[in-house]
């Protein structure tokens, strides 16, 4: 009886957005009288940081600082339609809608500034610091603050824009299954190291080394939050979690956090993460959805590592100590 070390690998791809498309999201952008920008949505932030990333996308597109952008969302009386926050669609779908709305608003903003500076709008650019200037002549400039004031009080113009993003729905061909499930895919590869106690069947996840390709890390700190949390959650799926431990029998289903098992702060695997960026052609600034893709390759990597450690295959999730012990017993009697 001993603790046995094993190593496993798995690689996956993951579609961004609702399968087969047909899932629209809209955004509205307008400036306040002093050149701050309001993004109006009905999308829901579940904690992944949707509001923050939308503010950064809007700021990048218009050419202002992120703190000048306010996100007003999750209200059906004010926000235009969004299909919802699921299927790794938030950053991709809503982000594209915000870009479109922000581009339209930016165009009006530049037209107003052009009138003030008596040049063509196409000759103007933003400096990202709150000013609009003539390309190649940074001294000939007007602040966005003054531009917005002028639009509101002198020209009677609304610096605003509308955005809509829809991946047209794909209908699978009945006989062949020809279809377009997604426009872009994230990728991942995980190497897991485990210790398996062949006396108790207990698995200790020594480390997971995750490589994720997500198009573009629009806010690397928030991406890291998703990737670390997702990696933890799916290790939990692999080894601990189920509402019906003896499925298809319905007994022993956990109904609280004492009975429904998950790894606590004392059970964490050493987790390393490397992010690759291959921009998606239709992603907002190249981004794909990171939220779900990060919670997949660890399960098979762990299953393969357990086999490498003790030579038994557990083909049913979760891979509990009981299942490992039963398999070891069968292996020894064979």
């Amino acid at each position: 009886m001993a603790i046995r070390r094993g190593r496993g690998v798995a690689a996956i791809n993951y579609p961004t957005g609702m399968n087969l498309g047909g899932d629209p999201s809209q955004a509205l952008v307008h400036s306040t009288p002093t050149g701050n920008f309001m993004v109006t949505l009905s999308s829901v932030d579940l904690g992944q940081g949707l509001k923050q990333v939308m503010a950064q996308i809007c700021a990048e597109t218009i050419g202002v600082k992120t703190e000048q952008v306010i996100i007003d969302t999750a209200d059906t009386d004010t926000g235009p339609h969004c299909m919802g926050t699921f299927a790794s669609r938030g950053t991709h779908r809503i982000g594209n809608a915000v870009i479109q709305a922000a581009q339209e608003a930016r165009q009006v903003m530049l037209e107003v500034a052009a009138e003030a500076l008596e040049v063509n709008a196409s000759d103007l650019d933003t400096d990202g610091e709150g000013n609009i200037h003539v390309k190649g002549a940074p001294q000939k400039s007007i602040s966005i603050f003054d531009t917005a004031l002028m639009a509101h009080f002198k020209l009677g113009r609304s610096i605003s824009g509308r955005g809509m993003f829809l991946v047209p729905r794909s209908y699978p061909e009945v006989e062949t299954g020809a279809m377009k499930p997604s426009t872009c895919y994230a990728h991942a590869c995980t190497v897991a190291d485990v210790d398996v106690d062949d006396e108790t069947g207990e698995v200790t996840v020594v480390s997971v080394k995750n490589v994720f390709e997500i198009g573009r890390a629009l806010n690397p700190k928030m991406v890291e939050q998703q990737l670390v949390g997702g990696s933890w959650m799916v290790i939990s799926h692999a080894l601990y979690e189920t509402t019906e431990p003896y499925y298809p029998a319905r007994d022993h289903g956990g109904s609280d956090f004492n009975e429904y098992l998950m790894p606590g702060p004392g059970d964490l695997a050493e987790t390393e993460i490397v992010v690759l960026e291959r921009p998606a052609a239709d992603g907002p600034y190249g981004a794909k959805g990171p939220g779900e893709m990060c919670a997949n390759p660890q399960i098979p990597a762990l299953a393969n590592a357990i086999f490498d450690a003790v030579g038994v295959r557990i083909d049913m999730m979760p891979i509990t100590p009981e299942r490992i012990l039963r398999a070891l017993k069968e292996q020894r009697s064979a």
Binding site: Q225, V228, G229, G230, W232, M233, P265, L268
Partner: peptide, 9 residues
């Protein structure tokens, strides 16, 4: 219990 962060942060 935390379900989002994986506790490490």
């Amino acid at each position: 219990i935390c379900r989002c962060t994986g506790y490490e942060p």
